[in-house]
Each structure stands twice: as C-alpha cells, then as structure tokens.
C-alpha cells in the first residue's frame, strides 16, 4: 500500500505531465475555442497543484477567477468577434 506522502508524489507527477501537455495543446491548437478550453483545464489542474502545495487561499482564488471568469471573458470575446465584418 502507498502511504500519504507517496500518493501525493504520484499525484504531483500526474498533474505535472498533464499540465505540460495541456499547455502545449493550448498554444499549438488551430481552433481558438479549443485553445481557450485547454487553458481552462490547465487552470483547473493548477488549482490541484496549489492544494498539494498547501496554499488553500490561492487555490480558492484561482478556481473562481482563473478557470471561471477568465474563460467566460475569452468566450464572450470570441462570440463578439465572429459576427462583425466577416471577411
């Protein structure tokens, strides 16, 4: 059986790998809305990273702002830029 410290270490490695993959996808994806969604998922994983590193204040703030409000602002901008003056 794994004890608590080992579970945390495995969790850290999994989060680290997923975060790097999501950041790569967010930068290199062709579709803008997919890039925004990858950024939101990256932000949500970073919340788990903050909790693992014993920073609950930062985790609450990042969960509300980083993956909620910022994503909605990106989506509204994409909706607003799709209609006016389409080439």
């Amino acid at each position: 059986m794994l004890d608590n410290i080992e579970v945390l270490q495995v969790l850290e490695i999994v989060i680290a790998v997923f975060m790097v993959v999501l950041a790569f996808l967010a930068i290199n994806s062709k579709s803008l809305i997919k890039a925004v969604m990858f950024l939101s998922a990256l932000s949500m994983l970073s919340v788990i990273g903050f909790v693992v590193m014993q920073a609950p204040d930062v985790a609450v703030t990042e969960a509300v702002i980083g993956s909620g409000l910022v994503t909605s602002l990106f989506v509204f901008t994409l909706l607003a830029t799709k209609k006016v003056g389409v080439k």
Partner: peptide, 24 residues
C-alpha cells in the same frame, strides 16, 4: 467567503469574484 476571510481560506478577492459570477 468574504466575511470569514480572516478565519478560513478565501477572503475579499475570491468572495468578490463569486459575487461577480452570480451576476454573470
């Protein structure tokens, strides 16, 4: 979250953002 900011995780910044997301 805003009122209990000095006792529990949270505080003015995430509490204010939650108020704004209720408006959203």
């Amino acid at each position: 979250v805003t009122i209990h900011g000095h006792l529990t995780p949270g505080g003015g910044f995430p509490g204010g953002a939650m108020i704004a997301s209720s408006m959203l």
